[in-house]
Amino acid sequence: MDDTTGTLDEALERLHLSGPERDGWLSNHAPMAVEALVRHGQAPTVHRWLDHYGAKLEDMPDTFTPVTAVNWREALGDPRRIADWTAYFGRETAERPWRDVLAEWWPRLLPGIAAGATHPAIRVGHSVRTLLEGEATAPRVRELAHGLGYWAARHQPLPGLAHLAPAPSAAAALEAVPAVAEQSGGILVRLGQLTAFPRWPERPPAGPDAARAALEELVRASTHRYATHGHGEPIMLVHAATAPNAVLRTLPALPRELWAPSLAGAWAASAAVTAAYTPAGPARFTPAATTAEELFERAAAHGNDHTIKFTDTALDIGDETALAAALRSIELNPPAL
Score class of each variant (00 low, 15 high):
Gly125Trp: 04
Pro61Gln: 06
Val38Trp: 02
Ala43Arg: 10
Ala30Lys: 06
Tyr53Thr: 04
Gly41Tyr: 00
Arg80Val: 09
Val46Tyr: 03
Ala36Trp: 05
Glu104Gln: 13
Val128Pro: 03
Ala83Cys: 11
Ala115Gly: 10
Val128Tyr: 03
Gln42Trp: 03
His29Phe: 13
Trp49Ala: 11
Glu21Asn: 08
Glu21Asp: 05
Pro44Ser: 09
His40Cys: 01
Gly125Pro: 06
Trp49His: 08
Gly116Pro: 00
Pro44Gln: 03
Gly90Trp: 02
Asn71Ser: 15
Ala33Tyr: 11
Asp62His: 14
Gly77Phe: 07
Ser27Lys: 08
Leu50Val: 05
Leu110Glu: 05
Leu76Asn: 10
Asp59Pro: 13
Asp62Ser: 14
Arg96Ala: 15
Glu21Leu: 09
Val101Asp: 07
Ala121Gly: 09
Ala75Lys: 09
Phe64Asn: 07
Leu50Ile: 09
Met60Glu: 11
Asp78Ile: 14
Thr86Leu: 08
Ala114Gly: 06
Leu26Lys: 15
Gly77Leu: 05
Val101Cys: 06
Phe64Asp: 09
Ala121Cys: 10
Trp98Leu: 07
Val124Trp: 00
Ile122Pro: 00
Pro97Asn: 08
His29Ser: 13
Ile82Asn: 00
Gly112Leu: 09
Ile82Phe: 01
Ile113Lys: 00
Ala43Pro: 05
Tyr88Trp: 15
Asp78Ser: 08
His29Thr: 14
Glu104Arg: 13
Asp100Asn: 06
Pro97Phe: 07
Ala83Arg: 14
Ala36Cys: 12
Arg96Glu: 08
Arg108Ile: 15
Arg22Tyr: 13
Pro79Ser: 14
